[in-house]
Amino acid sequence: MTEIGTELAPIIREITQIQITAYAGAAGDFNPIHLDEKFAKTTQFGGTIAHGMMIAGLVSELIATSHKRTWPESGKLKLRFKAPVRPGDIVTAHAKVKQIRGTELTYSVGVRNHKDEDVIIGDATVAVVVE
């Protein structure tokens, strides 16, 4: 039985530059802030950072793991990117039920880095299959 406050098992991953580079190729996003250390050093971040969509993918993976087919068929995601994720960061994607309305569940979702800083915050809503 899902209740308000129920948490999904978090996903914990280390983010590497190899992964960021692979994502750039897969997603066709070659912004130098993600790939070019020399360029990235001149920016406010002082080095390369991961693509926001790559990290957001962890939130989607987390919800999909629990809700299977209903996520691709009815999922809603609203995210704010609060802070950069750098190569070497260990991030944790988390989700906690914050609202149950009819057959819809809304999770408070997010991703934190190993310094316990929020890097992504937001909500995810998904329909629940009634057996």
């Binding site: 066709g28 920016t43 790559m54 068929e73 995601l77």
Partner: peptide, 30 residues
């Protein structure tokens, strides 16, 4: 989402240093 954005990024020709501030997505069918 990511692979749709791929073409959009090409067409937008976003300048270096552009940042992604937020993302909303609604999945309506598999």
């Amino acid at each position: 989402g990511a692979l749709s954005l791929r073409g959009v990024l090409d067409d937008l020709g976003i300048p270096s240093g552009t940042l992604h501030a937020g993302q909303e997505m609604e999945f309506l069918d598999s």
